[in-house]
Amino acid sequence: MREVQVETITNEVARLCIEACYYLGDDVLAALKKARASEPSPVGQAVLDQILRNAEIASQGELPLCQDTGLTVVFLELGQEVHIVGGNLYDAIQEGVRKGYKEGYLRKSVVDKPFSARINTKDNTPAVIHTEIVPGDRVKITVAPKGGGSENMSYLKMFSPAAGRQGIIDWVVECVDKSGANPCPPIIVGVGIGGTIDQTTLIAKKALLRPVGQPHPDPEVAELEAEILERVNKLGIGPQGLGGRTTALAVHVETFPCHIASMPAAVNIQCHSARHKEVVI
C-alpha cells in the first residue's frame, strides 16, 4: 500500500487554508469580471470594481480577502489503497488548520458551547471534515473556509414530491430574495435536491466547489440551473444588495436519489469571496 505521512497532510492543509483566504480562484475572478461588464447599475459596477480591487490587494499576501476567514470545511477523498502513517489522520487535519490559521494571520472564528458560553477555541478548530473513500492510492484534500454571513443564509425544505420542478425553482428564488444583502452578493447558490436531510445539505455545499458557472453534466440539471439563475438575477438585489442585475454569479445544483415519499431540498449560499483550494497527494 502507498504510504502517506500525517506530517504531509498537516502541512498541505495549512498551506491550503492560507492560499484559500488570500488568493481568489481564477474562475471566481473571471465570473466577477464578466458580471462587471454586463451590470447596468452604476452602484453595482462600483461595488464589483471594489471587490476586484480587493482581490488584487489580498493577492499581495498581506491581508486576507475577507476578515471572516470562516469555519474550515475540509472535503477528504481518501483512496482505499492509501495507508496513513505516523499518527491519526483527523488529528493531522486539525493540526493543519491550527497551523494555517496561526501562520496566515487568519481570524479564529470558532466557538465551543454554542448555545451558552460561546468560548472561542482560539485556533479555529475543529474543522468540519467530510470523508469519502474512493478507489486508488491518492488523497485529495479540498479546504473550503466558509464565512458565517453566507452560511447563516441556508435553507432546508422537505418537499412533497408533488411540488415538482416548479416548486423547487420558486422556493430557491424565494430563499435568495429573503436573504437580500446579508450573504454578500453577488453570490453562488448551492442547491441540493434529493437524498435525506443530511445528504441534501451536504450536496448543496459540495455544489459550491464546482468551478463557478460550469453547468452540471446532466443537461436536465443544467437547464434547471440556468432557469433559476435567470429568475434570481431578475430580483434586483444586485451587488451588495444595493440594486442591480448581478445577484448571483451562478446556481449550482446537485441531485441524489431519494425515498418515494420525499423530495428534500437544501440551499447553501456562498458569498462572492468563494474560497476553496485543493491538492492531490
Binding site: 461595488v47 471587490i51 491581508l63 480577502l65 475577507c66
Partner: peptide, 10 residues
C-alpha cells in the same frame, strides 16, 4: 451605513 462585505483588505 453599509460597507462592502468581502472588501476587507481594501
Amino acid at each position: 451605513f453599509a460597507a462592502i462585505g468581502g472588501a476587507a483588505a481594501l
